[in-house]
């Protein structure tokens, strides 16, 4: 009898990239639900626009590169990029900005480097950062959580995201519907020489749900992140290091200056903290390789985010923190190669 002679090993566990990506999408469900409940169904529009654009951009890029598009479209990685970007955007963002950001994320963030596995930067954060520096006004118009029923109606949403951006009459609407996020309000308040207790006492900053609703979004992201940890799709090193890098300096600064520095709890539950710690910084392609390297990488992201939140020009700093640490990955990898069994300590 004759047999085929494939090389060992002859059995594999059967993990697959599409399965990993699907699990990540599943873990994003809680944060998406919290987002929709607090900020209205605008997220669904953003998700739809981002996913369609991402798939189109991926297909076009693969065609330009002369590759077979079908397996790459099915692996789900581009949908993860699209969903992470959509979750980072305000639900009221004009649709064409969402489409632009997603297309740039896929093309400039991923395919110019050679596609999946080759990109040095987190693609979603490339798209986000380009939008933030190019369209700061649109990018920071967040709806007031639970406060304005109109932002929860589909017709109003459609008018704002698909048509309402144009024309003078819409300006008044925008002002009515949107407001600064908690981090933004705190930054402005501190700049105007208010003290923290004064700012945090205001309803429009913290609100009844803490950090203007973002506390709940962060807790939902934390729940999804814990699911990823439990399924071992993400290992603990990066999330723990990101949170430590952010919260340790926050604790120290708050202890030294309670009137001028946010507490660790506020930092942990405001802005993009949990989404960044568990879903964005953990993108393995653009993260450091070894466990030790991932601790340095995560701590760097947390620390940079704290620095940007405290002294930088933007209210939240995770996108830039992640991109900066992406730059440092080759350096980190070079100095954190684990000791090989049997080599000198």
């Amino acid at each position: 009898m004759r047999f085929d002679t494939s090389p060992a090993p002859h059995v594999i566990a059967g993990y697959s990239v599409p399965r990993v990506m699907f699990q990540v999408l599943l873990a994003l469900v809680p944060v998406a639900i919290a987002h929709i409940v607090l900020l209205g169904p605008g997220l669904l529009l953003q998700l739809a626009v981002a996913c369609v654009t991402a798939l189109l951009a991926e297909a076009i890029a693969l065609r330009w590169r002369g590759r077979d598009a079908a397996p790459a479209l099915k692996d789900g990685s581009v949908l993860v990029t699209a969903c992470l970007l959509a979750l980072s955007l305000t639900p009221l963002l004009p649709w064409w900005l969402t489409a632009l950001g997603t297309a740039l994320a896929v093309l400039l963030g991923k395919h110019v480097f050679g596609g999946l596995g080759q990109n040095p930067f987190n693609p979603a954060m490339v798209g986000y950062a380009i939008l933030l520096v190019s369209f700061p006004l649109e990018m920071t118009r967040w709806p007031v959580p639970l406060d304005v029923p109109d932002t929860h109606s589909w017709t109003e949403l459609a008018r704002m995201t698909f048509a309402g951006f144009y024309g003078a009459a819409s300006d008044a609407r925008w002002d009515a519907y949107t407001g600064a996020t908690a981090l933004d309000a705190i930054r402005t308040g501190l700049d105007l020489r208010y003290t923290l207790p004064e700012i945090l006492g205001r309803d429009d900053v913290m609100g009844p749900l803490g950090a203007r609703g973002f506390a709940w979004i962060n807790l939902a992201a934390l729940a999804g992140g814990l699911y990823l940890l439990a399924r071992r799709l993400v290992r603990w090193h990066i999330p723990v290091a990101v949170l430590a890098g952010l919260l340790v300096p926050a604790c120290i600064a708050h202890a030294l200056d309670p009137g001028g520095s946010l507490s660790a709890t506020t930092h942990a539950l405001a802005g993009a903290t949990m989404l960044a710690a568990f879903f964005i910084a953990t993108d393995p392609v653009s993260a450091a390789t070894s466990d030790r390297g991932r601790l340095w990488y995560g701590a760097g992201i947390g620390l940079l985010a704290w620095i940007i939140r405290t002294w930088g020009g933007y209210p939240d700093g995770f996108a830039f923190a992640v991109l900066l640490m992406n730059l440092a990955v080759p350096f980190i990898d070079r100095y954190t190669v684990p000791r090989i069994h049997g080599r000198p300590r």
Binding site: V20, D75, G117, V285, T289, I340, H341
Partner: peptide
């Protein structure tokens, strides 16, 4: 065969401590 996504599962299980 998908491209490597650098997930590091291989390094996690390697009995020789390799990457």
């Amino acid at each position: 065969e998908h491209p490597c996504i650098r997930c590091g599962d291989c390094a996690d299980v390697c009995p020789a401590g390799l990457l």
